[in-house]
């Protein structure tokens, strides 16, 4: 009888072991040692005539920048490409309001006042100075939307514009923020 019990206990022990927890797991990780999904894939931008450089995720594909742009990239997102461009113009290039409203017009949106534009813009900074990021979308036109950075310098203004579908904007927003914050002196 005792032996049968022992065999039964062995049987229960075997079945009792479960490799999967029945509760969600929980842990804390220091922000310092978390491997950033974006940071491991960065390369430095190619030399250009400006005195600043930036980091480019390695899956971004450089494309012909033309005569106006400092750089252009294609970003693969699922089965299509988003476009991102870096340009620089002298002075304030018309200012934040004129530029944001110009982009809004491209998406058939009404112009906004400078107060609204500034309140909706997200501020950030890199080693060149403070910049603002503007997300410009028209929900009736999901095929196109912009994420734009405006970085005023001493005698010029740097613009970064990401053009993609609304869905891709969501995906690329963090990458775009990291890109904007990587601008620095050469």
């Amino acid at each position: 009888m005792g032996r049968t019990y022992l065999v039964g206990i062995l049987f229960l022990l075997y079945f009792g072991c479960d490799r999967y927890p029945s509760q969600p797991r929980f842990y804390k990780l220091s922000k310092d040692i978390v491997v950033d999904d974006l940071s491991d894939d960065l390369i430095q931008s190619k030399e250009n005539e400006e005195n600043f450089i930036w980091n480019v995720p390695k899956h971004w594909i450089p494309k012909d920048k033309g005569s106006v742009r400092l750089a252009s990239y294609q970003i693969p997102v699922l089965d299509y490409f988003a476009d991102i461009s870096v340009t620089k113009f002298g002075g304030d290039a018309g200012g934040i309001k004129a530029n944001v409203n110009r982009w809004r017009k491209q998406l058939d949106l009404n112009p906004q006042t400078i107060e609204i534009i500034q309140s909706e813009g997200i501020s950030g900074s890199n080693s060149l100075g403070r910049y603002t990021i503007h997300k410009i979308i028209n929900t009736e036109k999901p095929e196109s939307g912009f994420l734009c950075m405006i970085l005023p310098l001493k005698n010029s203004t740097v613009f970064v514009k990401l053009n993609s579908t609304l869905y891709a904007l969501d995906i690329l927003e963090q990458e775009f923020n990291a890109f904007c914050s990587s601008f620095r002196q050469r």
């Binding site: 969600p24 804390k28 922000k31």
Partner: peptide
């Protein structure tokens, strides 16, 4: 990621992921 020093991770393994499952913690 509300803490400035730590990120708190709550992990639901794949066997929790099925239609109509409720994930809570």
């Amino acid at each position: 990621s509300s803490d400035s020093k730590y990120d708190e991770y709550t992990i639901f393994d794949e066997e929790f992921l099925y239609r109509d499952a409720l994930l809570y913690s």
